[in-house]
């Protein structure tokens, strides 16, 4: 008997998510606990608890079934990609107001390019410059999004 570790992990993730919502509803982490109410007069906690309960059941069922199924063959985890790609949107969010559209777009393109092992510095610079020009043309001059080209961190240009 082999255990499919992937399904085991899926079941565990479902249960963790369910518990997270359930505990938050009952005890309230960083927020007040949510009243459950009654089926006739549901409180804000009723639906979350119902769903969390169902998700727990599904999670357990997935774990029980993992005993008999065959795992998929997986590629390696792209650690480099994860480390580079995932922080990029956060960086974008933190800098867009201060730096403005042009520098932030350039940074986004430049940094994310290095998620691939094939990327070389000259190409990354060219790519970032090209994308910045394109995005500025499309979003600023074309669609006229209200974000300034240069933010208030850059006094001379804003």
């Amino acid at each position: 008997m082999t255990i499919n570790r992937q399904d085991l992990a899926v079941g565990a993730i479902f249960i963790v998510i369910a518990l997270f919502f359930a505990l938050n509803t009952f005890f309230g982490l960083f927020q007040p606990a949510l009243p459950i109410g009654t089926p006739q007069r549901m409180g804000p906690g009723f639906f979350p608890i119902l769903l969390a309960g169902l998700l727990t059941v599904v999670g357990i069922a997935v774990i029980l079934k993992s005993v008999r199924s065959q795992p998929l063959t997986l590629n390696d985890v792209p650690w480099r990609g994860l480390a580079v790609i995932l922080p990029v949107p956060v960086m974008f969010g933190l800098t867009i107001r201060g730096l403005g559209l042009v520098p932030t777009t350039f940074l986004t393109a430049f940094i994310s390019a290095f998620a691939s092992r094939r990327m070389r510095l000259p190409l990354a610079l060219a790519l970032a410059a090209g994308l910045t020009a394109f995005c500025t043309a499309v979003f600023h001059y074309g669609l006229r999004i209200p974000t300034p080209l240069f933010g208030y961190w850059i006094p001379g240009l804003s």
């Binding site: 949107p89 974008f92 777009t105 986004t108 094939r118 979003f139 669609l143 999004i145």
Partner: peptide, 19 residues
Amino acid sequence: PYYMLFPAILCFACIGIYA
């Protein structure tokens, strides 16, 4: 090549979402 495509996807996605 995909390594040139995904920085573009990320740029569009970030700007689009922020807009």
